[in-house]
């Protein structure tokens, strides 16, 4: 059964989002869905397909897991602030609840902004574009650092936990299983996912800021603290958005890509999976100071429209398409 009310709600939400950004002089951009290369991201599985042409021959293309690489090229070429609503794809995703391998993403970059500036913008955008008046929107957002959240919900001192042995002993104190050899990031995630993420308030937007530097990404580092200028936002316990103060240092970007590519190749070789063609070209771009955010629009719509899973608002979720085969 197709829920046309949900279709109308989505259409209204998209219209409101477009107006919000256009009114603030952002340029709406349109970038490809098929790409001949990808940013190396070992934790993301991609879809690939073959381009066939009698002159070019066969060439592998990928369905984009995010439009980031194209949008950053536009920014480096002088676009100014931009936004895009696009369809993205992630393979091996769970079906149902709040996951679908094909999903809708809003990505927005604001010139001269930091990640902290983007909190205010994002909250304003969500408030102004909402298609309903859900109870979580009536409360002021909670802005909390990862250091504070780890202390409050797991009793873990994140600064002390820079020392792996301490982090590990804390995980064990919390009754978590930790294998003999494990990365800092994985042990941290065991604690975070079990005790912190599940305890975040569900009655308001929660902006969880300043992620540990050990979780590598293209957000800037704080000069004086082992954290990155990055936040994730949750509504009703669901991860809705993430945002960076975008890294501009070309050497850092290139070495990050190379490390990620090494991990990707090592992991995929072990499992026998195909290795997608990597693109490092972005590392040579001149990135201006900006903050980039990405919002899962199916999930945002769900929190405004109501319900516990995204399948009903998708009209054709993959889980039901598979059942009717």
């Amino acid at each position: 059964m197709i829920d046309f009310k949900a279709q109308r709600a989505r259409s209204e939400l998209y219209k409101n989002i477009r107006s919000f950004f256009l009114d603030r002089d952002y340029l709406e951009v349109f970038t490809p869905t098929l790409s001949p290369s990808l940013i190396p991201e070992p934790t993301i599985k991609t879809f690939s397909t073959l381009f066939k042409n009698e002159f070019v021959g066969e060439k592998e293309f990928y369905l984009i897991p995010s439009p980031e690489i194209f949008m950053k090229e536009m920014i480096a070429s002088g676009s100014g602030s931009i936004f895009q609503i696009s369809t993205c794809f992630r393979n091996s995703e769970q079906l149902g609840d709040v996951h679908n391998p094909e999903f809708s993403m809003l990505e927005y970059y604001t010139m001269d902004f930091t990640d902290k500036d983007s909190i205010e913008l994002t909250h304003e955008m969500i408030k102004e574009t909402a298609i309903s008046n859900p109870s979580w929107l009536k409360n002021e957002p909670l802005i909390i650092t990862m250091e504070e959240a780890m202390k409050e919900f797991a009793g873990v001192d994140l600064l002390k936990a820079q020392e792996y042995e301490y982090l590990r002993s804390e995980a064990e104190r919390l009754n978590l299983y930790v294998p003999d050899s494990e990365s800092w990031e994985d042990t941290f995630n065991r604690i975070f996912l079990t005790y912190v993420e599940t305890s975040l308030p569900k009655d308001r937007e929660v902006y969880l800021c300043d992620y540990p530097s050990q979780i590598e990404c293209l957000a800037k580092d704080y000069p004086d603290r082992p954290y990155k200028k990055r936040w994730e936002m949750y509504i009703k316990g669901i991860e809705i958005a993430n945002c960076y103060d975008e890294e501009r240092d070309k050497d850092k970007i290139l070495s990050y890509y190379k490390r990620e590519q090494d991990i990707l190749e090592k992991e995929r070789k072990a499992t026998g999976e195909a290795i997608s063609k990597a693109d490092f070209s972005f590392a040579s771009l001149d990135m201006p100071q900006c903050s980039g955010g990405a919002i899962g629009l199916d999930r945002l719509l769900l929190t405004e429209y109501g319900g516990d899973e995204i399948a009903p608002i998708l009209s054709f979720p993959m889980c039901s398409m598979l059942k009717t085969e």
Binding site: T43, R190, E197, I215, E216, C217, E232
Partner: peptide
Amino acid sequence: REFVNPGKGSAFVR
């Protein structure tokens, strides 16, 4: 059982 992918992290099950 719930699958969770922390942003930029490996896949976990809760």
